[in-house]
Design a protein around this nucleic acid. Structure first.
Lengths: 204, 204
DNA sequence: TGTACATCAGTGAACGCGCGTTCACTGATGTAC
DNA sequence: TGTACATCAGTGAACGCGCGTTCACTGATGTAC
C-alpha cells in the first residue's frame, strides 16, 4: 500500500469531523459563545483533552464550521447566476437557497446566528465569505446587457441587495419550516422580480 | 407628598434599569446565551440574589431589552413613512436608522445579534416587533397612489423588503462605524431607490 | 522481512474557579389606627 | 402626629456542579536501517 493518507491521519480526520458534527448539532439550540468544549467532546465520546489535538478553542472550531457551511456554495451560486433571463435566474436562485436550507438546515442556522454573534473571528470569517458572494454576484451582472453603463459602485450596490436578500431568504426558510417553503419561495421570487424591475429602469 | 411612585418603588425601578444597562454593556462583546447573572449583578454592585427581585433569568432580562430597544421605534417609523415623495421618504428613513445606530449602538447590536440568537423567547420578541414594523410599512404604502391596485399579499411582500433592508442597513452602519456612515447611507438610499423604481413598474 | 526507535492522537487525574440557586436574614419603607 | 405591625428590595453564606486547562502517560502507527 502506498501511504494514501495513513491510518493515523485518517483517524484524526475522522475525530475532527465528529467534533464538528457534534458541535453543529449542539448549536441548533444555543450560540457558539456558550458552547462548551466538554459538551462537544462528551457528545463525541472522547476525552475533553482530545479537543486540543484539533482546535485551539471553540472559536477555532467555529471558523472551521463557517468554511464547511459556505465554502462549497460559491460554485453553486455562480452556476445559478449564469442562467440568462431574469425569470429563470430568479427561479434558480431561490431554488438553490431552498435546497440548501432543506439539505443543511443546521449549517444555515449556524451561519445566520453567528453572522452577528458574539465570537469575533467567526463573524469575520462569515463576513469574508459574504463579501466573496458579493464579488461573484457583481461579476455576473457586469457582463449583462441590462446592466450596461452602470458604475462599479452601482453594481456593488445591486450585488449587496442580492446577497442580503439571499441571507434573509435562507433565514425565512428556516423559520417557516417545510410546510412554509412554498410561501417563502413565492415571496422571495416576487421580491427579486421587484429588484429586477428596478434594475431595468435604473438609468431611465 | 402624594405617593406619586413611592420611594421603595422608585429605588426598585432604578436598580432594574441599572441591571438592564449593565447587561446591555456586557452584551457588546458576547451573546445573551453566554451572559451570566453574576456578571450583571457584579457590574451593578448588588448581590447576585438581587437579580431575582427583577427578572426570572437572563432570558427574561433579554425580553425586557427588546422592548426597550424597539418599543419606541414604531412612532418614528410611521413618521418617516408619512413623508410624501419617494426621495424625501427614502432620505428620512435612512437618516432615522443612521440616527438610531449613532444614538443607541448597543441596543441595535443587541437586536441584530439576538434576532437569530440562541435564546428562544428573545428571538420571538424581536420577531413580533419586526412583524409590527412590517404592518406599519404595509399600512403606509396601502394609502399611496403608486401602490393602487396592489394585492394585500404584494403589499406585505414589499413591506418585507423594506423591513429587511432596515435591519441590514442598521447592521451595516454598526460594522462601518462613524467614518463609514456616509458611504453606508449612500448605498442604502440607492438600494431603496432601486426598490422604489421596481414598485413603480410592478403592474406594467 | 524484521527490529529498534520516534511520533503523536487520545487518556485520565487533578487543579482552581465562577456559576445559578436556596435560604433565612435585615432594615428601610409603607400602612392602619 | 405617633405607634405598632406588615411588606419587601437587597444581603450574605452556603451548596453542588461543570467548566477550561495542565500534565505526564500509553500504545498504536510510522520510519530508518
Amino acid at each position: 500500500m502506498s501511504h494514501t493518507v495513513g491510518i493515523r491521519q485518517a483517524q484524526k480526520q475522522k475525530t475532527r469531523q465528529a467534533l464538528m458534527d457534534a458541535a453543529l448539532a449542539l448549536l441548533e439550540e444555543q450560540s457558539l459563545s456558550s458552547l462548551g468544549l466538554r459538551e462537544v467532546t462528551r457528545a463525541v465520546g472522547v476525552a475533553p483533552t482530545a479537543f486540543y489535538r484539533h482546535f485551539r478553542d471553540t472559536a477555532d472550531l467555529g471558523v472551521a464550521l463557517v468554511e464547511e457551511a459556505l465554502g462549497s456554495l460559491h460554485a453553486l451560486i455562480r452556476e445559478a447566476l449564469a442562467e440568462t433571463g431574469d425569470d429563470v435566474r430568479i427561479e434558480r436562485t431561490v431554488a438553490l437557497i431552498a435546497d440548501l436550507v432543506r439539505t443543511s438546515p443546521a449549517h444555515v442556522r449556524f451561519v445566520a446566528r453567528e453572522q452577528h454573534g458574539g465570537v469575533q473571528p467567526v463573524r469575520e470569517a462569515i463576513r469574508a465569505q459574504l463579501r466573496l458572494f458579493g464579488d461573484e454576484v457583481a461579476a455576473a451582472f457586469a457582463g449583462e446587457p441590462e446592466t450596461r453603463g452602470w458604475s462599479e459602485e452601482d453594481l456593488r450596490m445591486l450585488a449587496g441587495v442580492y446577497v442580503d436578500h439571499m441571507v434573509m431568504t435562507a433565514s425565512a426558510f428556516l423559520e417557516a419550516g417545510p410546510e412554509g417553503e412554498e410561501r417563502v419561495s413565492s415571496v422571495a421570487r416576487r421580491q427579486l422580480r421587484l429588484v429586477s424591475l428596478g434594475r431595468r429602469h435604473w438609468l431611465d
